[in-house]
Nucleic acid binder design. Structure first.
Lengths: 341, 341
DNA sequence: TGCGTTTGGTAAAACGGTTTGTCAACGGAG
DNA sequence: CTCCGTTGACAAACCGTTTTACCAAACGCA
């Protein structure tokens, strides 16, 4: 811990060559002409001395940090953001890059400061992310460095972004129920105005339309997407005359409420009513009995895509701007069966 | 984006002084003697030009990065690790430091590589963390730089660590039930051998003992800590003769199973049976109806403590090694009431 | 022998700051 | 008038790499 750190000069002296040559060899620069013996001597010396290049010096000289910043509102806190971070992390590692995390809470002032701190030359690019799929306005400061939006979309069109294909996911969920024979499908939607709300509604309607099932407005009830509200909505939906035989829930929390409402009504899942969720929040979907069939948000894949896209743009700023939708696959557990009647 | 970056020399020229003076003034070095007018001129120039020091250059010269690494198994992925990361993050920000995240999955090979990558001079210290309270062996490579264990303990005693006070948490949970009048309290424990298992068992026993309630071995049933097993264990416990009036569950997932078992048995919570959990995993504890009374793991606080301790040790290596237990407070929702009989 | 061309390597200039050591000018004190 | 301490500022060294430009020796060939 206290012995003097071995630097490139140490290696050079040990191998009896210049610093230049050591650098050339260790980075195996293709244009360098160095004899095989010399190369060998250098590698030996480096290994023997346990030489590790000083990354900071390298960064200063090459003006590149090989690090990415992940900046979000409270993204690291939220339950499934973990998978997004993991996807980003592993993609970065794969390229030999590092990931720095920062969250700004919901304080825009802090956000600005943290962006500034990051910008202070520590990262080559930024992932700007939100804790759920949202439309944002990219802060001007971000425009000075390569940026990719993760689980967020910009109003303008000049910054790359990746978000879940909400509509397709909802379409698949609806089809899953239709395929089992359901024709009267309740939809407990989000009451807020976010992309997921109308995206999923569109997917639901598209599914119904494709199967020739008329859309019945009384079957969709919008509520805040939490368990308690899901409980209430389910009670209403299943208490009605000609009750639906299946429920498509905006998310797994709502589905959790639906399960409890079904239990309260004495209805078994899926024998008496089928339920499908959205998000695949595993603490919930795996904890419910029977397991909840749901639609997974591709968080891992989005994280990975964003990093790949960001690195590509850092290496070549001419890389075209893409805005992709990633598919949301259905995850089958045990909550969907044929209709009771 | 393309205009030449303003560096310290630019400011110096604009203010008509030397680079030295600019540095001295902008960092307001106490020993520097610079006239008030000159100072003012420099600040003006810096502001006008929008000067931001190059952090990398600064790091190279001062041999300090003001960044911390958070290295974990799959810590960022797990549901409540988020709060731990957040605590660490905010503590770091408070000191003006940055946090880098890395997770090694469960691949020790990768872990080693990533430590090496981190060590390459990008961070001044490391937080070594696990996704649940565990006893670990600190890799030798870590011993070369300041390290603090987060939610983990080392076998040896020379590295600082912070973990939840499992025993006290379980004691509080038990007391919560006892205070409501319960005397026959089932305990669905973890079947694995980790600190939480025996810590919580000890706390449970201590609570009982203190209240003069004899320990009944048939009331504690160890299972893998997931909902399905909690369901089964609850069925057994509540199906028995002289059934317990309250259940203390190893964690919220188990409690989630217990809720569903209670519903299946036609028992209401808390009228017929009281339930208390552990962990305060909010997707669960807030999603269950009624809300789950549980014991919170102090993840946020642990993260913050670890960062504070780490920075202290970086600034002064003589700082004594502490190994702290942080309290686990009871979070009251609606699942505990007086006994049914 | 003379002259280009490889081969194998090096010296020195960046990169952008911080820190140390030096110095001129000035104002009292003796 | 000299000496000395203080004030205000700066030149240059340094942090540890990468990269550019250059060079000596050896080689090939007429």
């Amino acid at each position: 811990m206290t012995q003097p750190r071995v630097k490139i000069r140490t290696v050079a002296e040990a191998a009896g060559v210049s610093v230049t040559t050591v650098s050339l060899v260790l980075n195996n620069v293709p244009s360098a002409r160095v004899s095989a013996e010399t190369r060998e001597r250098i590698h030996q010396a480096a290994r023997r001395l346990g030489y590790v290049p000083n990354e900071v010096a390298r960064q200063l000289r090459s003006q590149r940090t090989k690090a990415l910043g992940l900046l979000g509102d409270e993204v690291t806190t939220t339950p499934f953001a973990g998978r997004m971070v993991l996807g980003a992390q592993e993609a970065a590692s794969k390229h030999g890059w590092l990931l720095m995390l920062l969250n700004s809470g919901l304080d825009p002032e802090l956000e600005r400061k943290e962006i500034a701190a990051l910008i202070r030359g520590r990262v080559d690019g930024l992932l700007y992310t939100t804790m759920y799929h949202r439309v944002v306005r990219v802060p001007d400061q971000l425009r000075t460095m390569p940026t990719v939006l993760l689980d967020a979309e910009d109003e303008t069109t000049d910054v790359p972004s990746v978000v879940p294909d909400e509509q397709d996911g909802a379409y698949l969920a609806t089809k899953e129920l239709l395929n089992h024979g359901h024709r009267r499908i309740g939809f407990i939607n989000h009451s807020g105005d976010i992309p997921a709300t109308w995206g999923r509604l569109n997917g639901y309607r598209r599914g119904l339309a494709e199967a020739g099932v008329p859309f019945a407005p009384e079957l969709v009830v919008p509520v805040p997407p939490v368990a308690r509200e899901g409980y209430g909505a389910t009670l209403r939906l299943l208490g009605a005359e000609r009750r639906p035989t299946a429920l498509f829930c905006f998310n797994d929390r709502v589905a959790m409420g639906a399960y409890q409402a079904a239990a309260a009504l004495g209805l078994r899942i899926p024998a008496d009513v089928s339920i499908i969720g959205f998000d695949d929040q595993q603490e919930i979907s795996e904890g419910l009995l029977p397991g909840l069939t749901t639609v997974a948000l591709p968080h891992y894949e989005m994280g990975a895509w964003a990093v790949d896209a960001l690195i590509a743009r850092i290496l070549d700023p001419q890389t075209p701007v893409e805005r992709v939708l990633l598919p949301c696959p259905v995850v089958r557990r045990g909550s969907v069966g044929p209709p009771a009647f």
